[in-house]
Design a protein around this nucleic acid. Structure first.
Length: 895
RNA sequence: GCGGGUAUGAUGGAAUUGGUAGACAUGCUAGACUUAGGAUCUAGUGCCGCAAGGCGUGGGGGUUCGACUCCCUUUACCCGCACCA
């Protein structure tokens, strides 16, 4: 995944995935593949704009500068990137096509009969022929009309209808509005009512905004997960996010009203136990249903809920609610049931209303108990004592025609009845919502949309794209929710009296298709040429962090599927194999600080003091950094005092007999704010890119989180020098052309096999181990034979591109080691004449013995039993069984 | 609460289909060489024990000739989602 070029530059964690993909790319090239290994920058987004607000430096300027710095850092690491295909999402030549894809989304709807996107023109022709009653399409249209009615509508009315079908559509909706950042945030940018970035409170606000109808693709996004090679954790995250559930949609009549309450339930079978209903406090019917007598109660309750922030709701899940005074009719019992409102029903999920079944739902039960509402037991679970309330097992009771049925059968039976009674139908529901796509921000792609005098949205055609972001020095978002672009009159107002959209797209827009652009990065006539996309197809190996598990990967899959529907890409899924690189953690060094006295307390004395706060200390001040006994020396303390003016006169409390101020070490995120960032540039300056690359791989499995420990790099450094020394004596190149020994050939071929197998299963840490073992063994054999060292140099080339190239040329080759061909493993060299067998007695290893590799089972068994060490253990005991696994082991069972 | 994952020496980790647990590396201990070094080389290093031997992959149980690996159960930690109807 391409990086966001932040001002902090790369730290040692960033290159991990790029090193892995570079090794894999170089390996594949050596085996004859044409490999596309590209790089680019995810360059639009909030941080650059925040930086502009803080410093006055234009986002374009700082982004350009950061990208340049990233490029410099990456260039030092020996990556085989094809920079001629570089993609920057903020480049108009690139976002021209981001805008174009958006216009295509606007011009399409999702047809559920053919299960793909079709053009709006096709939809219009259906409306003209037959109205919309028979159209099966993903939509938010609330009216039904005939062909005649459609034709009678004004242009504006027709456009408003169509907006409810488009895959990119504009609507008023509740959005996550962050006052502090002055923008709308996506659900995944809000954590527990707080903005992920900056940690500011987020409220729900109604606003006009563009949305993408990703829900139309929910089922395909869910089921096609089966076809990709991703981790189960990642698949589970996406599938949870989509949150498909099956149930029933039902309409309840309201006594004395023509309105109906629409609900969604996954347990239609429990309907005989539905003794009351609950609406979300924000539900549109609340005002209308509330009786005069209850008006005050309801208003008070709504005020109470409004005053409660999302955090309050999370923190204390009190049972609260208010009665509207209205009654609905349970269609199965025909009983009057009261309609309440309560904050535990959410306006954003399902229909914002529920039928409450207190006997079989934990929350409904608590609510009913608190407010004294009727509870009718409808599922007999006495046969399942361990079952929870929500488990779908048991037999129906007190439920009319459902009595005696198992829950699952009862669900099916109820669904049938509901459809027969025409009060609802079986329905699939999703947790995933359509994605708000508007940002009231400067630094993003302008929407390629204009509005005519009547407010109808229309696209800017491809010939007029890109619609370039206008320059300004006024990036500040306004608190009224309007984008900085709205302050540029020449931008908003069009000669024909229309206006431009002033919002911009979110950062996720540009990253949703960049991988396709790499295939044909400089094409000005298409987002990607047909020939190029048919050649490269999709991404074979995609490496990136888990932070993109939902947002980026779901959007990219959605866009890809849309493009697939339009015949523009040949594959259903964009990323065949995906690896989530683990985080490289850092050690954080803390100094204990006592706020009350302003004293710093050495770690070994910490137990004697109270109310200590650990403050992160810059790791440059620390001696024996990362060890258990890391400390500040007198020098370190001075550095700390000089760090910030307010630290100048700090008092440090040390143990009586010590001149060391001990710090507390903890493994955690490598971050600027923890002052523990290790810069790859420094490591590369000291050890070189090859050692840096190999050490990052050697740290552990690519997917695991693991702490960075600069000291450990000496192992890889030693290996490199020893490997070099195989070719040299006192730094003079001394490689012999003598024929290699059998043993030497065995080491070579065993290494070829191990390294190759391990690359293929992305186990790069064990590849490095294999190189080390190989080098250790050749050193013992004093091997300096060309026939061994030359193939090894090629084998090492993907990992250590510089050193291997150097050695390759010293070996007398003129072309590049990276353009030669990969050594071929030959079984015959690793075949053993004799094999050493472990001999176990009752599963415990007691002896070893060598046997010819072609010895028969019988021979081995006989010889093993005769073995002196074995006899010691079998003496006086009965041999019950002897297991001989050829080439593996021998187990003798005695008793 | 739901979903996913992890647990192996002092540390990072290895053991691809059940077959010698701890490869490789760091650290540590001892020694060698020295124009004292964050250099290089050699040996040792899972735990208990003088030894023989015993114990050992978070805990308990099971399957198997044999379990880090498979099954059941349980604990701890990490990640994602969450009054989701």
């Amino acid at each position: 995944m391409f990086p966001y070029p932040s001002g902090a530059g790369l730290h040692v964690g960033h290159p991990l995935g790029y090193i892995a993909s570079d090794i894999y790319a170089r390996y594949k090239r050596l085996t004859g593949f044409n490999v596309l290994h590209p790089m680019g920058f995810d360059a639009f987004g909030l941080p650059a704009e925040q930086y502009a607000l803080d410093t006055g430096i234009a986002p374009g300027v700082s982004t350009e500068k950061n990208a340049k710095r990233y490029r410099e850092q990456l260039d030092k690491l020996g990556f085989s990137f094809d920079w001629s295909r570089e993609v920057k999402t903020c480049d108009p030549k690139y976002y021209k096509w981001t805008q174009w894809i958006f216009t295509e989304l606007f011009e399409h709807y999702y047809d559920q009969t053919v299960d793909k996107a079709l053009s709006i023109a096709h939809l219009v022709s259906q409306f003209e022929d037959d109205g919309n009653a028979k159209v099966k399409a993903a939509n938010t249209c609330e009216t039904t009309f005939t062909a005649a009615e459609w034709k009678a509508m004004s242009h504006k009315e027709q456009q408003d209808i169509l907006m409810n079908y488009r895959l990119a559509y504009r609507s008023v909706g509740y959005v996550n509005w962050c006052e502090e950042l002055a923008t709308v945030l996506a659900n995944d940018q809000v954590k527990e009512g707080i903005s992920e970035r900056g940690g500011h409170p987020v409220i729900q606000k109604a606003m006009w905004q563009w949305n993408l109808r990703i829900t139309a693709y929910a089922d395909r996004l869910l089921y096609d997960l089966e076809s990709v090679d991703w981790s189960s954790a990642l698949k589970a995250q996406q599938s949870n996010w989509i949150g498909r559930s099956t149930g029933a949609q039902l309409f309840f009549d309201i006594e004395g009203s023509n309105e109906k309450i629409e609900i969604y339930t996954t347990r239609p079978d429990t309907i005989f136990g539905a003794t009351y209903m609950v609406l979300a406090p924000e539900h549109p019917l609340v005002a209308q249903l509330t009786t005069d007598a209850q008006k005050q109660d309801i208003e008070d309750y709504i005020a109470y809920v409004g005053a409660r922030s999302e955090i309050d709701r999370m923190a204390d899940k009190q049972v609260t609610g208010a009665f509207t005074g209205a009654y609905a009719i349970n269609p199965f019992t025909n009983k009057k049931i009261p309609v309440w409102i309560a904050e535990y029903v959410l306006i954003g999920y399902g229909t914002g209303a529920i039928m409450a079944v207190p006997s079989d739902d934990e929350r409904d039960k608590r609510f009913a108990e608190k407010f004294g509402l009727e509870i009718i037991d409808v599922v007999d679970k006495s046969a399942f004592p361990d079952a929870t309330l929500s488990d779908k097992i048991g037999k129906l009771i007190n439920s009319g025609f459902l009595n005696g049925m198992d829950v699952l059968d009862a669900i099916a039976a109820t669904n049938e009845k509901i459809e027969e009674m025409q009060i609802g139908k079986a329905k699939v529901n999703y947790r995933m919502r359509d994605a708000g796509f508007s940002r009231q921000r400067y630094w993003g792609e302008p929407f390629p949309m204009t509005y005519d005098k009547d407010g109808n949205a229309q696209i800017i055609p491809l010939e007029q794209l890109p619609l370039e972001l206008p320059e300004t020095d006024d990036y500040k978002p306004s608190r009224d929710g309007r984008s900085p672009l709205s302050r540029i009159d020449s931008w908003i107002n069009l000669p024909d009296g229309g206006t431009r959209e002033t919002d911009t797209m979110p950062a996720v827009a540009g990253s949703s298709w960049y991988y396709l652009r790499y295939m044909d990065a400089n094409n000005d006539d298409a987002f990607v040429g047909k020939k190029a996309v048919n050649y490269w197809q999709d991404v074979d190996l995609y490496i990136g962090g888990t932070e993109h598990a939902v947002a980026h990967l779901l959007y990219a899959r959605f866009w890809h599927k849309f493009l697939y529907d339009n015949g523009l890409v040949p594959t259903k899924e964009p990323f065949k194999k995906l690896i989530n690189q683990g985080m490289i953690q850092g050690v954080i060094e803390f100094a204990y600080y006592q706020k009350a006295t302003g004293k710093y307390i050495s770690a070994e004395l910490a137990a004697q003091y109270e109310d200590l706060t650990p403050l992160p200390v810059h790791i440059n001040f620390v001696t024996d950094y990362g060890s258990d006994n890391s400390y500040l020396s007198a020098d370190g303390i001075t550095q700390y005092k000089n760090w910030r003016p307010e630290y100048k006169n700090s008092e440090f409390v040390l143990a009586d007999d010590s001149d060391r101020f001990f710090t507390k070490s903890e493994v955690g995120k490598m971050s600027k704010s923890k002052f523990n960032v290790i810069n790859p540039d420094e490591v590369v300056a000291e050890y070189g890119a090859d050692i840096f690359r190999m050490y990052e791989m050697f740290l552990g499995p690519i997917e695991a989180h693991k702490p960075w420990d600069t000291k450990g790099i000496s192992g890889v450094s030693k290996f490199m020098r020893r490997f070099w020394d195989l070719f040299h004596t006192n730094d003079t190149f001394t490689v012999s052309d003598d024929a290699p020994s059998k043993e030497e050939l065995k080491v070579l071929h065993a290494t070829i096999k191990r390294v190759t197998d391990d690359i293929q299963r992305f186990s790069f840490n064990t590849c490095v181990s294999a190189f080390m073992e190989c080098s250790n063994e050749l050193r013992k054999l004093k091997c300096n034979k060309r026939a061994i060292l030359e193939p090894l140099t090629i084998l090492l080339a993907p990992f250590a591109p510089y050193t291997s190239e150097d050695l390759w040329h010293q070996l007398g080759n003129t072309a590049s080691v990276h353009e030669t061909s990969y050594p071929i493993f030959e079984e015959k060299y690793v075949k053993e004449d004799t094999i050493e067998y472990p001999i176990s007695i009752n599963g415990k290893k007691r002896a070893t013995a060598s046997f010819a590799s072609d010895a028969s089972k019988e021979e081995i068994e006989k010889a093993a039993l005769a073995n002196e060490a074995v006899q010691k253990w079998t003496e006086g005991k009965t041999i019950r069984k002897v297991i001989v696994v050829p080439k593996r082991m021998i187990n003798i069972v005695v008793g």
